[in-house]
């Protein structure tokens, strides 16, 4: 057999090492520029964040020293919780700061708590999947939308090893667009389709989103057993969050998003959710309702099995407001 290694070193002409590394650095910068600027999903959520920030400033001015309710979570929160209804029921002004579940729960909780002051309420409407699945605490999308500083919250709650490993990993991974993303974007661009399914015009006052796409047969899930009741990392982060809330004197609650399931799966799914809520309640108080996060009427959903129609969203917000009011009355 030919001595391939030797023949290579003799034959192959190479660039000086600094040319190769310089080119690699240049490509990293180009890829990160593309990734940050041409990702329509990140662009959309950045625009939403800007709009919501001005909405929050206005609401703060309106209520003066009074408390505020911050609603945080994935897209189920953005589409399904109506601050105006909550204010009507509880008498406390509210703002919706929901993002997308793809951002990971650490960014979403940071987004919901970063502007909360003493006396404010934070309601986390996080999809169970991101608290149960390992490694769903952060994502490249969060890094593209929120930059790097949101990692601080995780660092304070994490163990030393995680501080060493994690803080820069996802933001740096975000710098790569990826073949799947580039292919899909090119195909959409060439076919003249919308680059992202939601537009900034879908954003309503107080931060609620609505979809102009309606799929009457939204994803109806069969019974879906949870991977685990609560991920270990998520448990540590929730423990930290509870500690953070006590320190800052803000009141943080957890509530389960409504999701569409097959009618036959309801009882079993609700029992599954009850177990999950029991785990979460070790760290945060729960605001629940009789639905226990599982519905079977798909006409209440918009384009996915997590996004409620405006009418269903208002009902959900009313029930949530009542649960909060009951909780406060009990406390008093």
């Amino acid at each position: 057999m030919v001595d391939v290694e030797k023949s290579h070193f003799d034959k192959v002409r190479r660039f000086p090492w600094y040319v190769t590394l310089g080119f690699a650095l240049m490509m990293v910068l180009c890829a990160s520029f593309c990734s940050m600027n041409f990702d329509p999903e990140a662009k959309f959520w950045r625009a939403v964040a800007r709009e919501r920030q001005s909405d929050l400033t206005e609401t703060r001015e309106r209520v003066g020293d009074g408390p505020l309710i911050f609603l945080g979570g994935g897209s189920s929160c953005s589409f399904s919780l109506h601050p105006a209804v909550l204010e009507e029921v509880t008498g406390i002004a509210a703002v919706n700061l929901g993002g997308s579940a793809a951002m990971g729960y650490r960014y979403l909780t940071w987004l919901a708590t970063k502007d909360a002051r003493e006396g404010d309420f934070v309601i986390l409407h996080l999809e169970p999947d991101i608290l149960c699945r390992s490694g769903a605490w952060g994502s490249s999308l969060a890094a593209k939308v929120g930059g790097f500083h949101w990692e601080e919250q995780g660092q304070r709650g994490a163990f030393a090893q995680e501080i060493f490993e994690n803080p820069w990993r996802d933001p740096l991974a975000a710098l790569k667009p990826g073949a799947k993303f580039l292919g899909a974007l090119t195909a959409k661009f060439l076919s003249g389709r919308d680059l992202y399914r939601y537009q900034i015009s879908d954003l309503e006052p107080h931060g609620v989103l609505t979809a102009h796409v309606q799929q009457p047969n939204a994803d109806i899930e069969p019974f879906t057993p949870m991977v685990q009741w609560l991920d270990d990392q998520a448990s540590r982060d929730l423990r930290f969050l509870a500690h953070y809330a006590r320190e800052k004197k803000i009141r943080i609650f957890y509530t389960l998003p409504w999701e569409c399931f097959e009618h036959e799966a309801l009882a079993e799914q609700r029992a599954e959710h009850a177990h999950y809520l029991q785990k979460v309640s070790q760290y945060l108080p729960i605001l629940d309702d009789e639905m226990m996060g599982a519905l079977s009427d798909n006409s209440m959903f918009l384009d996915t099995g997590f996004h409620l129609t405006p009418e269903a969203g208002k009902l959900r917000s009313q029930l949530l407001g009542e649960a909060l009011r009951r909780h406060l009355e009990l406390k008093e």
Binding site: H8, K176, K180
Partner: peptide, 22 residues
């Protein structure tokens, strides 16, 4: 050998930066 060619190497570097998943 062909994939170690210096010009091909530049293409590979670009591919790593643009096409590898996150």
């Amino acid at each position: 050998g062909l994939l170690l060619n210096r010009w091909v190497q530049l293409l590979l570097i670009a591919a790593i930066c643009f096409f590898s998943p996150t």
